[in-house]
């Protein structure tokens, strides 16, 4: 389906657009200013003798000045080239615009004393594209520059008009939390976390609880084990706040606790809803948080005394 705005735009393609005539003829003075500002020391732009040695009648303008002669200047309120096109885009929500590339052609040098005019038209409008900035259309406008009736330059200027992504603040970082690496000894823990369970490894022979888990019971050397679900309550045994280096997605000052679970083993996790008053000995309770699309983690919250 072709959107109506796009039909309107396509009607503008090839239609003669805005015309402009330079306020003043090209001049040695403007050329000299330009060369000073850009830092172009080529003598054919500023030295008549040098220009003549290269076969010109007098100084010539750097070709890249092409666009400068007929620029409208900074007067507010004047219609801008392509104004109708811009209006259609804006109405359709394509309020973002970026220039993407510019190609110029120079059939000959422009000398001093030439009155340059330009005419602009819309050359093409692309179909809707998806870009990193949002969905939008690439448009190419073409300017033709003349001295009298003679074409002395053309410029194709390409822009992207896009719909800025919905007003969601651009995420400061796409960084995600490090994923856990697992071995056959530890994967049960992370599987439990996905199901909202805090599992503690338990020796099947002597009943010893252990965390972090391992393949053998350090008390009785049994390789047999299962897991019990912790109630999730515990006490802050120690804690830190991480400031530097800032490691996204973690916030500066991110609080991390070493919790002694009521079952007797200790475990590290981060603290959620933390105030500035974290203290060793505070009671905490585990919660399970889906921190991003494919990672759930146990986290602790301080219980009100």
């Amino acid at each position: 389906m072709t959107e109506s705005y796009l039909e309107e735009l396509k009607k503008l393609v090839g239609v003669a657009g805005s015309e402009a005539v330079a306020h003043y003829p090209s001049s040695e003075a403007m050329i000299h200013h330009w060369c000073d500002a850009i830092g172009d020391a080529n003598p054919i732009y500023t030295d008549v003798g040098a220009a003549r040695r290269f076969g010109f009648d007098g100084v010539v303008a750097p070709p890249t000045m092409l666009q400068a002669w007929t620029m409208p200047g900074l007067k507010p309120g004047e219609p801008k080239p392509g104004g109708a096109m811009v209006e259609i885009f804006e109405k359709a929500g394509f309020t973002g615009v970026v220039a993407t590339n510019c190609e110029q052609e120079y059939p000959r040098y422009i000398g001093a004393g030439e009155r340059i005019s330009s005419s602009q038209s819309l050359e093409s409008v692309s179909d809707l594209k998806t870009t990193g900035l949002g969905e939008g259309h690439f448009v190419t406008q073409v300017w033709t520059y003349r001295s009298g009736d003679e074409v002395v330059g053309t410029m194709r200027f390409r822009m992207l008009f896009f719909r800025p992504r919905a007003s969601e603040p651009r995420a400061p970082s796409k960084a995600r939390r490090p994923r856990p690496a697992m071995t056959r000894d530890s994967e049960f823990f992370w599987q439990g976390v996905e199901q909202g369970k805090l599992l503690i490894q338990k020796c099947a022979d002597c009943g010893e609880l252990r965390h972090p888990p391992g393949p053998m019971c350090p008390q009785c050397q049994s390789l047999e084990w299962d897991a019990v679900e912790a109630a999730g309550g515990g006490t802050i045994y120690s804690f830190v706040r991480h400031h530097h280096p800032h490691i996204p997605p973690f916030e500066v000052g991110h609080p991390i606790v070493l919790v002694e679970l009521d079952e007797g083993v200790r475990i590290v996790a981060d603290l959620i809803g933390a105030s500035n008053n974290i203290a060793i000995g505070q009671r905490v309770q585990v919660e399970f948080t889906k921190v991003d699309d494919d990672l759930t983690l146990p986290q602790f919250r301080i219980l009100k005394a």
Partner: peptide, 14 residues
């Protein structure tokens, strides 16, 4: 590698 997984996902990284 799995040892550091008891810390890294929670931001205890340095």
């Amino acid at each position: 590698s799995s040892h550091f997984s008891w810390y890294a996902p929670f931001g205890l990284l340095t």
